[in-house]
Design a protein around this nucleic acid. Sequence first.
DNA 1: CATCGGAGG
DNA 2: CCTCTGATG
Lengths: 266, 266
Amino acid sequence: MIISTVNVNGLRAAARKEEGFLRWLAATDADVVCLQETRAERAQLPEEVIAPPGWHVTLAPARDKGRAGVALYSRIRPDAVRVGFGVEEFADAGRYVEADVAGVTVASLYLPSGEVGTPRQEEKERFMAAFLPYLVGLRERAGAEGREVVVCGDWNIAHREADLRNWKANTRKSGFLPEERAWLSRVFDEAGYVDVVRSLFPDSEGPYSWWSYRGKAFDNDAGWRIDYHVASPGLAAQAKEARVERAAEYGLRWSDHAPVTVHYDV
Amino acid sequence: MIISTVNVNGLRAAARKEEGFLRWLAATDADVVCLQETRAERAQLPEEVIAPPGWHVTLAPARDKGRAGVALYSRIRPDAVRVGFGVEEFADAGRYVEADVAGVTVASLYLPSGEVGTPRQEEKERFMAAFLPYLVGLRERAGAEGREVVVCGDWNIAHREADLRNWKANTRKSGFLPEERAWLSRVFDEAGYVDVVRSLFPDSEGPYSWWSYRGKAFDNDAGWRIDYHVASPGLAAQAKEARVERAAEYGLRWSDHAPVTVHYDV
DNA sequence: CATCGGAGG
DNA sequence: CCTCTGATG
């Protein structure tokens, strides 16, 4: 099973572009694609996007127009789809959807992005506090049933110094705060998940998956690795290959994030 | 003296376009150009726009960012420039500027656009009520000094049935309300001004100078004549030629209005 | 169906 | 520096 995740920064804009999302979708070898920041309701999207031939599409837009929104594209029909993770505040926030596909639970997560000293950082903290227990329970249920799990998406946290280009300048910035990094450590150490891409690239800088549109961040590869495959150990052990589909090598840039694609031997 | 007037619908956007305002300005034979809806402050505009070689530029932006704004471009240095027409409410509204150029007072007017049943229609009415006395005084002063006057711009009123394509459907719409048309009649009959383009095209439909961006209004020539040269009779008598520079014949469309250009033998 | 501002990122 | 709203036209 090949799974890809990408924050599209507006699905309408991404699909409008000549060498954009639709071209990428037509060319990808992925079986399941997790999207974040779709920023659109079903009615705002063209037919090619909501019903591309060969794909089963699940949209989980946000309550607020033009905000957040996640989606799942699967070549195999999911056995079940669940929106949200049982916490009222984030039930309709367009931040979490999961599907059971061929015995694997695949989730698309868009964790709030935060800004230090603003209510958006508090929202991010509330999300993290609420989501960790859910992840623990998800793993326990999956383990009990012999099912594998992977939570793909934009976690909006770089875990370690190797996960962003200029870590020193960002130690007080949302996305690389000590408490955020510690929280992500708990996802791995306490909840028992594996950072799949890091496990395949243990000694690399990056590979980054997001570059600010500001300045020459992309040209200078001044990026962040904030898009993850966070998998149960059994699934992570089956990951044989991972790549970040950086624009230069995969056609034009149609988002500020690049797809993160992993081949699992399941 | 050749005078042209055009509502640019955002001077930044108009100047950004390849075949846009700057190309048009470089090609025009006009001596004076009146702009409306510049929607920008000086600091937001590039050098080529605020200081094109050979032009003296007067900007009269609005208090509110991104709203209204008028400007005058003149090849001859104006002897004097006056912003506003002495009424407090509209002093900084970016709706009126006049300049004395080679003995002629040329004004750029952007009359509020209004919408029936909203405060914006009331603002339009207040503007009309305040502006008519000013026009009367302007004519009187000019007449006493043997000076000619022309108030160019977007008056946001079609005067007669021949001045818009679908007049029947618009009798209750702002821009063709009986009271607005009557007010414009008073500008001509009481204040003693002449509708220059109509005087040169007495029996034509149009020529229209604005087409909505909505639908196929432009392709179907479903336009309105709301951009006028409103001149003192002495100057109007010298008008020898008028044209609306409709996009198709003058390069690509860079605004929803087209320049209205008149050759005066002065 | 454009332009612009401002929020969000 | 992008993508979205919503006001304005």
